[in-house]
Design a protein around this nucleic acid. Structure first.
Length: 592
RNA sequence: GGCUCCGUAUUUCAAUGGAUAGAAUUUAAGAUUCCGAUUCUUAAGAUGUAGGUUCGAUUCCUACCGGGGCCA
């Protein structure tokens, strides 16, 4: 039984019964702390339809619900707000329903498919802090959709070609002396990233040198010898020079090996990988087709453009005068390819930073203009940058926060904490490590996911791993403590099944109300592409349970049925916390 | 310059157009026989500015101020 839904339909019935017309705006919200009740109906909008005052409307509906609904035991009216008190019997049904359904909050398969793209790194450097937000977001949105019954295809496109990788290749050739991951002990992506930074360092000094000779900055940037080498290498790559291809494959394979380690640590996975080197020529034909159909136009120099001024945007080049394509062209091709590979998908989500909002707006518009009906089923999951308390991160220059380093630090910090607590002395070394990973990564994921994706955010590693406060570890801790209670209950021989419902305490009603909200939160998270909804929900539930835990005796209760109920109740909370955190990719320990 | 996103307690984050704007954090005072006190209670403290829309605005609209991003 879903209480909110039932209540809504009862209110609808009451309103039609009283006023002989449908209520079109049923606004239900949680009742304020200071008033009695759990659900509040906002009666201002209804007053307009009922043609009575808000308070009178509220009283009439309240009386009707008490008399006919069977779930409302009493009510009070404050201004236009109708505060409803749900009967314990109704709460009991809600609780029993949650208890008896192991798949609570998970919907059966609905036959629909969607695609979520996330991560999509360049192959010239390791993943950094921004990628962490991207990966956790994308993965979590995908899992949330799964919980709603969708078949989800997780994919990414590897940007494995272009000037950026050529820079690493050139620098490695010049300064690498044949260094390999095996020889140096460096992770493959770290090694390649090292030469990318090296390229930039040399490049900068060459520019300075040229500028010292009185050459203009723009010219210097083009004429720097090392840059000319990189441009030449890109040209050779496009002409399929075997030596260059060999080197390219070699260095990319190092990077992939490195990425695999990072992805495993992050706990993310992909069904299919797309490689830019295989798709970058796609889209050209499509653009030419669009040109024929008059969707695009050609300029005098032969370049192909799209005119979006009618849509409030500007003109955008799609094919350069020499016939080469731009990012937009490739993305057109890739989008088409994906709907071809997965014909049943009804939604394609692109998890990409908000600096590309304009790009995607244009992309989706073009796809629509080309006549692809699914263009409106494309969605840019845009997210803001992650800042650190120590200051902004700058790409290049090596001041970025490396994802591997950060995760390792979080795990290390968690292990220190675990030892300091001194509750895990009987753990094996392996168990300690596993627990530290759970907590360290949980802290990181929770902190990055609890914030609205669209917003630029501040990540404070120290704060994120605290066991108190609005953090992942706080929720994990709450879960572990509940498991401790359940272990003790088992020792005492209290059966783990839900007993008849005794009269409830206000704290228990509040926790059941929150439990009842869970499926809705999952839907909300998917609809808004905001795992933050689930994250904040889990925190509310953990916090509310802690208050219950403080004010209610569990084992000192003489009434056995009541004691048994509270054990069952604790069990349901633990299970729900586990499910919610699972959608965020966060594991919860039984002990910590 | 054009477009776009964001401005909320000291700080980090919340708030489908609803009641006295919530948490966490910090500081101060207090509680505790249980399961594991890293808990709980109380207090202090905020919507950038000026207008508009309406029963009611952090939310919607306009202008300005401040910050980020994209496009030249």
């Amino acid at each position: 039984m879903n209480l909110d839904a039932t209540l809504r339909s009862e209110i609808q019935k009451a309103f039609t019964g009283l006023f002989n017309q449908p209520a079109n705006a049923i606004q239900l919200q949680p009742t304020n702390q200071e008033f009695e009740g759990s659900h509040t109906l906002v009666c201002f909008p209804l007053a307009k339809i009922s043609r009575k005052g808000p308070e009178e409307t509220a009283r009439m509906i309240g009386d009707y619900l008490v008399a006919h609904s069977g779930i409302v035991s009493r009510y009070n009216v404050v201004k236009g707000f109708l505060n409803l008190v749900i009967s314990d019997a109704a709460w009991g049904k809600v609780f029993q329903a949650i208890w008896s359904n192991p798949d609570f909050g998970v919907l059966p398969p609905n036959g629909k498919e969607i695609m979520v793209e996330y991560s999509s790194p360049n192959t010239n450097k390791p993943l950094h802090l921004g990628h962490l937000r991207n990966n956790f977001l994308g993965w979590s949105v995908a899992e949330t959709y799964k919980a709603l019954g969708y078949a989800v295809h997780k994919v990414q496109i590897i940007n494995d070609r272009g000037i950026h990788i050529c820079k690493s290749m050139v620098a490695w050739q010049l300064f690498g002396h044949g260094e390999t991951p095996e020889g140096s002990g460096l992770k493959g992506d770290t090694l390649v990233g090292k030469y990318y930074v090296e390229f930039d360092r040399v490049y900068k000094s060459q520019i300075n040198e040229l500028e010292g000779k009185g050459i203009a900055k723009e010219t210097a940037e083009k004429e720097a010898p090392i840059m000319k080498l990189a441009v030449e290498m890109l040209r050779q790559w496009e002409q399929k020079n075997p030596d260059v291809l060999q080197l390219w494959k070699q260095m990319n394979s190092w990077v992939y090996a490195g990425f695999a380690v990072t992805y495993r640590q992050m706990g993310v996975d992909f069904e299919k990988l797309y490689y830019e080197s295989e798709t970058y020529l796609l889209g050209k034909e499509e653009v030419l087709r669009g040109l024929e159909q008059g969707v695009f136009f050609k300029k005098e120099d032969g370049s192909v453009w799209v005119d979006l001024t009618a849509d409030g945007l500007d003109q955008k080049v799609l094919l350069r005068s020499d016939g080469t394509s731009v990012y937009m062209t490739q993305d057109i091709g890739t989008a088409i390819l994906r709907f071809h590979d997965f014909p049943k998908i009804s939604l394609q989500v692109y998890t990409v930073g908000n600096e590309q909002e304009y790009h995607f707006k244009v992309l989706f518009l073009i796809l629509a203009k080309l006549g692809h009906a699914w263009a409106k089923e494309c969605y840019h999951l845009s997210y803001g940058m992650v800042d650190l308390p120590t200051g902004k991160m700058k790409s290049r220059e090596g001041t970025v926060v490396d994802a591997d380093d950060l995760m390792a630090e979080m795990v290390e910090e968690a292990e220190k904490q675990a030892h300091a607590l001194g509750k895990i002395e009987d753990f094996t070394e392996h168990q300690v490590h596993d627990l530290s990973e759970m907590i360290g990564l949980g802290a990181l994921k929770y902190f990055l996911l609890k914030v609205d994706p669209r917003k630029r955010m501040m990540f404070d590693p120290g704060e994120s791993i605290q066991l108190q406060g609005h953090t992942g570890p706080f929720i994990q801790y709450t879960h572990a403590r509940i498991r401790a209670i359940l272990r003790k209950a088992k020792e005492l021989g209290i059966p783990p099944d839900a007993p008849p419902l005794p009269p409830l305490e206000p704290t228990e009603r509040e926790v059941i109300r929150l439990l009842n909200l869970y499926p809705g939160k999952v839907e909300e998270a998917a609809r808004e592409y905001a795992p933050s909804a689930v994250a904040n929900y889990a925190y509310d539930l953990a916090r509310e349970y802690n208050q219950f835990y403080q004010s209610i005796p569990i084992f000192n209760e003489t009434d056995l049925a009541r004691r048994q109920f509270r054990i069952a109740f604790s069990y349901v909370v633990a299970e729900t916390l586990k499910k919610a955190m699972g959608l965020l990719g966060i594991r919860v320990p039984d002990r910590m």
